[in-house]
Design a protein around this nucleic acid. Structure first.
Lengths: 160, 160
DNA sequence: ATAATCCCTATTGGAGAAGTCGGGATTGAC
DNA sequence: GTCAATCCCGACTTCTCCAATAGGGATTAT
């Protein structure tokens, strides 16, 4: 049930951009993101391009360029990000809501396995589809603040 | 979040063996299992060997041989079967209970993503770890009976 | 002009998924 | 004792995807 690194890094990058936005920062350059998250820059770049193509992230070139959230953080559901990188949430296709596919078993309708997996998929969806990027960003900010830590991605002297 | 075919077939085979047991059948030969589930026999065989090695399934050779449940169906949790084939239930390692691993992010403790994934893993576990093979078999039998269908894997004339 | 940035395409190395195949060892029935 | 059905074991293949690396082009603030 593991997520791919692509998906994990994508989520981490989105959260960072959300944090940056919340901190009043506009664009964050790739090197800074990669350094902050300890990720290979070139690989992360690929992923950010994918997020851009998908419309979740915007970019600006040249000096003072970088990446920023394009969509509203409240409009990005974690479930959808996962779906984009991993496909359907359901463990087996015949239990999927968004990508149902008939399975090869003799009696799908009365299959106990399918019924169980429908429950599993519902449980996953209840967590991942209910939470938006904004929620995750908010939790991160709150817990960090409670611990007395300062927030990352502060603007570098007068940033619009 | 998809399960591999290996894992799916393993679960289907286990359920079949559970149904057979419940129907008073002792051993079911591979060809019958494969035909009933529409699965490639040779591949399914591999999987059954794996289930046998793990102690969930027993076998008998020669004529009137085949496979049968070795463990009690109530003792086989679906979550454990999934874990055996797919690894930890948690979407990311730093959210795993049974296979925790530190992640490369700068502040794991206050990471909103991790907290979310801990919830996701809990939700999955609540479904898959709570259900045993016996439960799934029972559901299958019940729903089939309600629909007026007869149960599969009946003993072939006086089977011990 | 220049340095920092994003943008695009290709390639690689390795692992794992999903099977396939050939042949050996047991066992029950006749 | 033979025979057919069955399990047992290990190798092999084919394909896809993952995770990452690499090279070089376009854009933009200073």
């Amino acid at each position: 049930m593991q997520l791919s690194k692509r998906c994990e890094y994508a989520l981490r990058a989105l959260i960072d951009l959300g944090l940056a936005h919340a901190a009043g920062r506009s664009h964050v350059p790739l090197p800074e993101l990669a350094a902050h998250e300890n990720l290979p820059a070139r690989f992360l770049e690929q992923i950010l391009q994918e997020l851009r193509a998908r419309g979740w992230v915007g970019s600006r070139r040249g000096q003072a360029g970088g990446y920023a959230l394009e969509a509203h953080a409240e409009a990005i559901s974690i479930g959808d990000v996962v779906r984009h990188f991993e496909g359907p949430l359901a463990p087996i296709r015949c239990a999927s809501v968004t990508a149902y596919e008939r399975c090869s078993c003799p009696d799908e309708e009365h299959c106990g396995l399918r019924l169980l997996m429908v429950e599993a998929r519902a449980a996953i969806s209840r967590v991942l589809d209910a939470q938006t990027l904004a929620d995750v960003v908010a939790v991160t900010r709150r817990t960090r603040r409670r611990a007395g830590l300062d927030l990352p991605f502060l603007p570098p002297e007068g940033d619009a």
